[in-house]
């Protein structure tokens, strides 16, 4: 029993830790993305791209993936092949090159297009709901499942002890029917 609880807790911990890990990695997005950059943006043949350029490119694409393309519903300006999206991408690049922070660039686009331009709602105030509700359901659901499994197995343990023992013995014979060894039947 305690084992299954442990297993569930482990899965839960993994699930809950993941967004945290993500949040941490988000802080390092630029750095991470920068390390990928040589693959993402090949230097032109013969030419070279300086480290600063590839950092800029990586920051641009990371930021551009969070901004919504106004003419092609649902796609980011990083993904969209549309002309406006390409131009907005170059605005992002220029702003970053001019030394603005990600937050400032985002604020610029919000001031022009409204919050609508962000593909992921800003995580504060009312918007927290959209992040919190699934987590509540997960935590509540895990609690419910643990409770149910506990009560269902408790009944079985509570029943006649002999039944459990008999089942264990019979299990040797009957289990292959439904258990792992069924391929032989």
């Amino acid at each position: 029993m305690s084992r299954v609880a442990l297993g569930i807790v482990a899965v839960a911990a993994m699930l809950l830790a993941a967004p945290v890990a993500r949040a941490q990695s988000a802080a390092q997005t630029a750095k991470d993305a920068a390390s990928q950059a040589p693959a993402a943006v090949r230097p032109p043949p013969g030419g070279t791209i300086s480290a600063a350029d590839s950092v800029l490119e990586a920051r641009t694409s990371a930021l551009a993936s969070t901004l919504r393309c106004p003419v092609c519903q649902g796609l980011s300006i990083q993904d969209s092949p549309s002309e406006l999206a390409q131009q907005m991408r170059s605005v992002v690049r220029d702003h970053l090159a001019a030394g603005k922070t990600d937050r400032e660039v985002r604020a610029y686009f919000i001031s022009k297009y409204g919050e609508w331009i962000l593909l992921s709602p800003q995580p504060y105030g009312f918007n927290l709901l959209v992040y919190a509700l699934p987590v509540f359901l997960l935590v509540g659901g895990l609690g419910f499942v643990v409770m149910k499994v506990r009560s269902w197995t408790a009944v079985s343990a509570n029943g006649v002890a002999a039944e459990g023992a008999a089942a264990a013995i019979a299990g040797q014979a009957s289990e292959p029917e439904q258990g792992t060894a069924s391929p032989v039947d």
Binding site: S65, G74, S76, D79, L119, P121, V130
Partner: peptide, 14 residues
């Protein structure tokens, strides 16, 4: 507001 790819990826990948 928009809810798009970054949101869904972050929330569903785990």
């Amino acid at each position: 507001v928009s809810v798009g790819e970054p949101f869904f990826n972050r929330m569903t990948l785990p």
